[in-house]
Design a protein around this nucleic acid. Structure first.
Length: 605
RNA sequence: GGCUGCGUAGCUCAAUGGAUAGAGCGUUGCGCUUCGAACGCAAAGGUUGGGGGUUCGAGUCCCUCCGCGGUCGCCA
């Protein structure tokens, strides 16, 4: 990095990942398949003149029934369209049910409650799903949902001013899992990190590093002054500067040494952060420098503001002071404002500070414009909940700067409370006053850290208990899910063979828990689509936990009932069928864990 | 005060507008003399913070109130 170079941290664009397999396999999602089948049934009723034409079936759903005794599928079709069809729901349900009953894949249909249609599938349907899952575990559950469309997921984007803490870790793991989930659902995903290498904070970083530089040259620096970063992690930066520059930077005015020191410190901090991320197996495709926006060949921020001004979305004006307590240094002045209120924000937002430099927001607009220019019609930002007040203006800005052609979804991650055996952890270590992410990952391991940070909805606060997440017991969901995978691996080791799906007669699988396991496997593609559509990777974690629970229940049954054991010397047909089921299950567990970025071990150690 | 998220079993939390609101922990009872117990089975436990509205149907959507957190021009 050259001294005085406008860009202290170059934009890095990694080479694109191999295209995601997104071959649509309509059969893989039986819920989608039968949703279309129900719509067909309605269409036939239209053709038969039983219901009026032009009925909207978009609210018709086929889902797993709440109670397994109701069968394999349930649909709300009759209730959803009863009004438009001018029939009462039960009557309409009977008509639809009569049509469905003619389907060879359906064993029986019944109407229940206010008009639910419950469907029991012919067992062969679930058997086919298991075969598909077993035959190609790499692609089972993937879908054409994304249809190869580009999505940009921006996450972490922590300021390059020090090591990351656990809160950053949550956003990091969430964003990473969400990106994997979307890729699995057929989107072309780019993982991006916005490097805040401009602004006052990195100048503070530079001054802090400069102090360490003087220290490295033997000066007594005493206590770190208020307002500078005190952490020891800047000592190596100072030492490197001393090695590189000797005493050359010592007796110069700040204006001369600051760019050099700043660039070096930012580079070192980004290396530190990337190492912390690598410890969680997180790797971004793009690191985008904030400084590059204004400091490149063209000033992208100025260009963005000019463009908005041309459309009368930027003006000079005054803002009302904030309601409630007036800030002490409030000064009523005319400033350059973006008409955020035209796009749903509460007030218009300033683009220039009183010293004439750009606000963070101005740069952020240009940054999101850059995403659009680079081809992203879908953007997801993952932020800490403390930035919640920023959401409206950013979505407003994206709408404005893309003329409504792009959508932005901001996912806020709530606080993480770090505990040890239920007691809050508040230690003060080398990095200042917080526990670093790295310390946590080193203590509990990557898999536990990732799973537990995902085992909660993003907008709910999360308790992270250092003692609990390493426990090898049923209480620990990470262990519980991984252990299911390892147990299956152990069965295959004992059986000493793999199973050819074509080779197994799955009608041997007659136990209720064996059938339930097939149903759950069949729900995986639907779960992936729903989780991807909602941008909620935690659903995958909860699904896996329940799936593992059903498997462990089956295992435990085999303890009391030897005829349910997976490998039976005297019953080749059952053994093959069960190994096929387990093979499919193992694939789903591995795929789900893969989405979460958690390993699927062959044995527990 | 404005905006925003949350409020569900004793605790920690699930539940694309669907049926009798589910798990785990904890509690209680029963089982297991480990070769498939790094436990199993079962039970009890709820006015989904209060109130109103939309809907065939609301924990979920709308309004309002209460409580907790976050945030509130010139930080990022």
């Amino acid at each position: 990095m050259l001294e005085g170079a406008p860009c202290t941290f170059a934009n890095v664009f990694a080479r694109p990942r191999p295209p995601t397999r997104s071959q649509p396999r309509p059969f893989m999602n039986i819920f989608g398949l039968f949703e279309r089948r129900v719509a067909d049934a309605v269409q036939r009723l239209v053709e038969a003149g039983r219901v009026p034409a032009g009925i909207d079936v978009s609210r018709v759903l086929v889902e797993p029934p709440r109670d397994a005794s109701h069968g394999d599928l349930a649909t709300n079709a009759a209730m959803a369209i009863a009004k438009a069809a001018r029939l009462n729901p039960r009557e309409l349900a009977a008509l639809i049910a009569a049509d469905l009953e003619t389907d060879p894949r359906i064993a029986s249909v019944s109407v229940a409650g206010p008009g639910f249609i419950n469907i029991a599938l012919h067992p062969a349907v679930l058997h086919e799903v298991v075969r598909v899952a077993l035959a190609d575990p790499e692609s089972y559950g993937r879908s054409g949902q994304g249809a190869g469309r580009s999505v940009n997921v921006e996450y972490v984007s922590a300021n390059p001013t020090g090591p990351m803490h656990v809160g950053h870790g949550r956003g990091a793991v969430f964003g990473d899992a969400l990106a994997s989930l979307l890729a699995f659902a057929g989107f072309a995903v780019t993982r991006e990190y916005y490097v805040n290498d401009a602004g006052a904070q990195v100048d503070v970083l530079a001054r802090s590093a400069y102090l360490r530089y003087r220290e490295a040259l033997g000066e007594k620096i005493g206590a770190i002054p208020e307002g500078l970063y005190p952490g020891d992690y800047l000592k190596p930066v100072g030492a490197t500067l001393a090695d590189l520059h000797g005493r050359a930077l010592l007796d110069k005015p700040e204006g001369e040494w600051l760019p050099t020191v700043r660039a070096a410190a930012i580079a070192d901090m980004m290396t530190l952060i990337r190492e912390d991320l690598a410890a969680l197996d997180i790797r971004h495709d793009v690191f985008f420098s904030e400084r590059s926006l204004a400091g490149g060949a063209t000033d992208e921020i100025a260009a963005t503001i000019a463009e908005l001004r041309g459309r009368d979305l930027v003006y000079e004006g005054r803002l009302p002071p904030p309601k409630g307590q007036l800030p002490e240094d409030w000064e009523d002045r005319e400033q350059t404002l973006f008409r955020a209120t035209q796009f749903g924000d509460d007030v218009d937002r300033p683009l220039l500070k009183s010293d004439g430099s750009y606000t963070y927001f101005a740069a952020d607009i240009a940054y999101h414009r850059s995403k659009f220019v680079r081809g992203f019609g879908r953007m997801i930002d993952v932020w800490g909940a403390d930035h919640g007040g920023y959401v409206k203006r950013m979505t407003a800005a994206v709408t404005a700067v893309t003329a409504g052609q792009a959508e932005l979804d901001v996912k806020l991650c709530q606080l993480v409370r770090l505990l040890r055996r239920g007691e809050p952890v508040k230690m003060s270590k080398r990095s200042g006053d917080f526990v670093t992410l790295r310390e946590v990952v080193d203590e509990v391991g990557r898999d536990s850290a990732r799973f537990m940070l995902l085992y909660r909805k993003n907008d709910a606060t999360l308790d992270f208990d250092l003692a609990k997440v390493v426990e090898q017991s049923k209480d620990n969901p990470v262990f519980y899910v991984q252990y299911a995978h390892a147990r299956i691996a152990s069965v295959f080791r004992q059986a000493g063979r793999v199973v050819d799906p074509a080779d197994a007669d799955l009608s041997c699988l007659a136990d209720e828990t064996e059938i339930e396991l097939q149903r759950r496997i069949a729900q995986f593609p639907r779960l992936v689509e729903a989780a991807a559509a909602a941008h909620e990777p935690h659903r995958v974690a909860f699904y896996l936990y329940e799936l593992a629970g059903v498997f462990h229940a089956l295992w435990n049954k085999g303890k009391d009932l030897p005829q349910l054991r997976f490998v039976k010397q005297d019953d080749e047909a059952s053994t093959r069928a069960r190994l096929a089921l387990l093979g499919a299950l193992k694939g789903v567990l591995a795929a789900g864990l893969g989405i979460l970025g958690v390993s699927a071990p062959e044995e527990m150690r």
